[in-house]
Design a protein around this nucleic acid. Sequence first.
DNA 1: GATACGTGGAT
DNA 2: TATCCAAGTAT
Length: 288
Amino acid sequence: MPALAPPLIAWYGENARDLPWREPGFGAWDVLVSEFMLQQTPVARVIPHLEAWLARWPTPAELAADPPAEAVRQWANLGYPRRALWLHRAAVEIRDRHAGVVPADVDALLALTGIGDYTARAVAVFAYGQRHPVVDTNTRRVLARAIDGQAQPGPPSRRDLDRMSEVLPPGRSDAAIVNAAAMELGAVVCTARTPRCAVCPIADRCAWRAAGYPDTGDTRRKQAKYEGSDRQARGAILRELRDAASHGLPVDGILAGWPDSRQRDRALDSLVADGLVEAADGVVHLPR
DNA sequence: GATACGTGGAT
DNA sequence: TATCCAAGTAT
């Protein structure tokens, strides 16, 4: 396997974007919040929400002291609102189990609500400087191309972590940079749609390039259509409830003009099941 | 391992 | 206009 770390470190030093979470003084809680928001959401959309969130809740304890409804409201239209609920739960867990301090241990982080393989290691590495592999969708694509010679990565696997481990240099600081650099490269150069191989720092050792850019059979499943979906109905309900007063709305008034009343009921039930919505005595409201 | 889960910008 | 895609997680 070609050595990827040296050119990645050099390239990152010259080309890393200026992003809030790369500023000195960006703390562990700040990193944790940013990683929640970045789950499946583009950087450009996250930045303004992140700054507003941290201005309102500079510590986990401050978020935990407010009801989950406020977290869901502040989340606004960022998407996947369960993340707001989970981030609030994680803040409560940090307050109750870790004395209000974001844990540095990967297993302790994994035990928090809403934190999985990626976020746990991202916090351990980027907030606390530990040496672990951090593998997101960008890194998986870079590894698939540079090492496997495939245009697109296969489905996510725990083995991805082992593969990234082999790329990391020995030192903690360099390892953290290589983790960040692989993500950055996938985000701005080795992109999904139109890779910019002409400016890629590892093009000279890329297996995909050496093989003539073979087109991997498109194994990805089509994303379900959003228009007319249950997801859209959930989003519309939550939007109404975010805009409503804290005492909520009468259940009959929810999505009153929705074309499919069965779908509306299904969406409402699923939101209740997720804990994003509470319903009692004919009134629906965000979780208190 | 497959599936459900938001939203909006880019192509 | 339709489709693709985005720093994943829980079930």
